[in-house]
Design a protein around this nucleic acid. Structure first.
Lengths: 222, 222
DNA sequence: TGAGTTCGGTCGTCCAGCCGACAATACAGA
DNA sequence: TCTGTATTGTCGGCTGGACGACCGAACTCA
């Protein structure tokens, strides 16, 4: 991939908007780009230097394989998200990112390069700090959801959050393109496949939502 | 409190170690110090500008009151920790910090002052960013503990972490000064008072630990 | 177009741990 | 020293939701 393309990719990321175009160009030199199609795996390289990743386009899921060989979805990464740095747990586990949409593009920096960038660019540093704060808050709310809410509530909050991020809303409903299996959703809300299926049908019955394999439609109820 | 005292207080905080003494002095001007005794409450002021807090000395617990009036301990803040910025959930809940030890000293900055500091001081910014990353990791590990481990395991990890931070170790045991009630521990590991009591006695029986109201002694077992 | 694989639907069983209730103890303040 | 309050100890009942099992439906790939 040539520098020009890189330049345009980085340019419209919120995080880099504080940089001048010459600063941005010099950053392009040290970026690494990767593209992937649905189902492909983007590896975190544990061996070499740690890297910071920016998802430019598409959607990823961070999965981990537990001792029984089950795939646990730990997080969803969407366009614009930063990942890799802290997603890595101390115990070097079998954790990696899988593309769930086509045309995934992400770029990465070596951790130390990135740190240097932050140091040279206070603006960028602040921007990054705020970003992290935001993510911290989200994790915290996930945590307290898990602590205090039952599965039913977690399921609904999950759908609502999802809808607010990716849904296309009409007058009285929000439509979501569904690229997750019940299994995926289950591990995201920390439950089981069967329970998720049950909840889908329960809510469908109540008229709160409708769904097929490819779509989820949330009815807006006042 | 005079500037000199402030200066010495800030000086040996890890975060500020990257600053020169003149930089540090100028920061002293904008800090606010508070002291508290056991049981006293340090309020987060929701109304005025958000503040960032640094705990200089002592221990705090962040508690929240739920709808039934129960006190839920959300976090423990120890000497050197930063708090306030993200502990605040979006829903302005009844959340505040309570001193659990005597001689608590903490200082705070207005959020915008702090941001300016970070911007002016890339070194400090980077230092702060790393700090946050560390906290993020901890929260993440708490989260996956809650997801995948049973109460028994969470209880033990909690004790182990506590011991590693505050315990005084001897040849074959670690002693902890216990300032938490079973109730407190329960909400920290997301369980109930009764279960915590049970676990304490179960492990005591097994000879893994010993405890009284004021002390917890963890036996080191190879 | 058919065989293999993954995903969704449903049921019955089972248990960790929550919850209420109450007793025993420790502790603090007068 | 006495009394009220906070903490700890213990028990049984109860239940949310995990888990295994099994089947049909949908998707995929040759």
């Amino acid at each position: 991939m040539n520098l020009d393309t890189k330049y345009w990719y980085l340019r419209d990321h919120k995080l880099f908007s504080v940089l001048s175009s010459s600063e941005l160009k010099s950053i392009c030199m040290i970026t690494n780009f990767k593209t992937a199609r649905k189902g492909e795996i983007i590896l975190f390289s544990h061996d070499e230097n740690t890297r910071v990743y920016f998802l430019k386009k598409g959607t990823l899921k961070i999965v981990e394989i537990d001792e029984k060989g089950n795939e646990i979805v730990k997080d969803l990464i969407q366009k614009g998200d930063i990942f890799g740095e802290f997603t890595l747990t101390e115990t070097q586990s079998d954790e990696y990112a899988v593309a769930v949409s086509d045309n995934v593009i992400c770029c990465s920096f070596r951790m130390d390069d990135f740190e240097q960038m932050l140091e040279k660019n206070p603006q960028l540093g602040l921007s990054y700090t705020k970003w992290m704060g935001f993510r911290f808050k989200r994790l915290q709310s996930k945590y307290s959801n898990l602590m205090f809410k039952d599965v039913r509530t977690r399921f609904m909050s999950f759908l609502e959050e999802w809808a607010s991020k990716e849904g296309t809303a009409s007058a009285d409903e929000v439509t979501l393109k569904n690229y997750l299996t019940h299994q995926d959703i289950a591990s995201l809300i920390c439950s089981t496949r069967q329970t998720v299926t049950q909840l889908f049908n329960e809510f469908k019955e109540k008229g709160i939502l409708d769904y097929s394999r490819t779509e989820i439609i949330l009815k807006k109820t006042a």
